[in-house]
Simulated scan of single mutants.
Amino acid sequence: MECLLGLLKVKVVRGLNLAICDPLSHSSDPYVVIHLGQQKVKSSIKYKTINPEWNEELTLSITNWTLPIKIDVFDHDTFTKDDTMGDAEFSILEFVEVAKKDVAGLPDGTVMKTLHPDSDNCLAAESCIKLKEGKITQDLFLKLRNTDTGELVLHLEWVSIPGMGH
């Protein structure tokens, strides 16, 4: 069995300017699917919007921090196959490295690391990994690929497993 390093809470905050998949209503019925290795978690469907507000927390068990987290956004269709609305991917390597550090005594709000958008990631804006209320957190603005438009806003939070180090 793989060793559990910790849990990653992925809060799917919202989508911005997602693709219009339902031309009649000029909107979409988006939902998000997050993959990590064999794990798959899914948000609820938000109807008739291209700027959905989910604010839903999905939890992944982290056993291999070298695997990227893959995200797909779909448009829910009742009678046909759901349309893809783009995808994104990000690495949690730096996030988990920071999460494993001893942060005792550091002031709340300490920025542990800043990540910048580049060709290797889907970041739409600079993203800081920081200490907030004793937890390692990160806000991500991801630009969706394989589509003309759309961004996703995510909030990550690390949950340590007691007895598993930090």
Rank of each mutant, 00 (worst) to 15 (best):
A88G: 06
L60I: 09
L24P: 00
L60Q: 04
S119E: 09
M112N: 00
L106D: 09
N51R: 05
K101S: 05
F79K: 14
T63F: 10
K130C: 10
K135V: 03
N55I: 06
S25P: 00
P117I: 03
S91Q: 12
D72F: 15
T63D: 00
F90G: 06
T137A: 05
D102T: 14
L58H: 13
V96M: 07
T49Q: 04
N121R: 04
G105R: 08
H76A: 06
F141W: 12
I92S: 01
K113C: 14
E94A: 14
P117T: 05
L67G: 06
R145Q: 15
L106S: 11
D148Y: 08
M112C: 13
I71D: 02
S127L: 09
E53P: 00
S25N: 14
W65S: 06
E53D: 14
N146W: 09
E53L: 12
A124E: 08
F74C: 03
D29K: 02
D139L: 10
A104P: 00
F95T: 01
E57N: 13
D83H: 15
T147G: 04
I50C: 02
P30V: 03
S91R: 10
E126W: 04
K143V: 12
A99G: 08
S127N: 09
H26N: 15
F79V: 07
D75A: 06
P117C: 02
P68Q: 04
L24E: 13
D77M: 13
N51W: 14
D87K: 15
E89K: 11
W54I: 05
E97P: 00
D139K: 12
T114Q: 12
K135M: 09
L60S: 00
K143W: 05
L93M: 07
L106C: 11
E97L: 10
D83A: 08
N146G: 08
F74T: 03
V98H: 02
L142F: 12
L140T: 09
P68W: 01
C128P: 07
T84C: 03
D83E: 12
H26G: 06
E126L: 15
D120N: 14
A99Q: 04
I34Y: 02
Q138N: 04
F95N: 01
K42I: 14
N121G: 10
L93T: 14
I136C: 08
P117D: 01
N55Y: 12
I34D: 01
D77L: 13
S27D: 15
P107M: 09
K46H: 00
K42Y: 03
L123V: 08
D77C: 13
S61A: 15
